[in-house]
């Protein structure tokens, strides 16, 4: 039984779905950020897999994944910095307690 592209796509879809559940349900803002990383990785797996199967001689999928990793790193650095700043001000990291911008 060979592994086809469909396997990778299904894997990435499941990882993406799990990431969405994490984003929507984790109370801790750090947890939300970490769930976001799952989404990035799901996308990255797709990139690499499609690249390998559709254009085997090219490695553009790899290059894109490198950029995804770099940008994800930048995103998490900023996100964590904001969470840290928020924690200092409000003494909490729970997303549902940061709701002053409401009606």
């Amino acid at each position: 039984m060979t592994i086809t592209l469909a396997h990778y796509v299904v894997l990435s879809a499941l990882l993406f779905a799990i990431g969405i559940i994490g984003i929507l349900t984790r109370r801790n803002a750090i947890g939300i950020l970490m769930s976001l990383e799952l989404l990035f990785n799901a996308a990255a797996i797709n990139m690499v897999a499609f690249s390998k199967y559709l254009t085997p001689s090219e490695i553009y999928g790899d290059i894109f994944t490198i950029f995804i990793i770099a940008i994800a790193a930048a995103e998490s650095v900023l996100g964590l910095a904001i969470i840290l700043a928020m924690f200092r001000k409000r003494e909490t990291v729970n997303a549902d307690e940061m709701n002053i911008m409401k009606y």
């Binding site: 086809t4 592209l5 469909a6 796509v9 299904v10 879809a13 499941l14 993406f16 779905a17 799990i18 969405i20 559940i21 929507l24 349900t25 984790r26 109370r27 801790n28 947890g31 997303a95 549902d96």
Partner: peptide
């Protein structure tokens, strides 16, 4: 508690997402 009360809608939404993608995968001729 480390989780909020949105678990059920979140599971439905993500399940639907996965279902859509997987059904697309199954319909596709690889």
């Amino acid at each position: 508690d480390q989780h909020n009360e949105q678990l059920l809608p979140a599971v439905i939404i993500s399940g639907l997402t996965a279902f859509l993608i997987i059904s697309a995968v199954l319909k596709t001729n690889w």
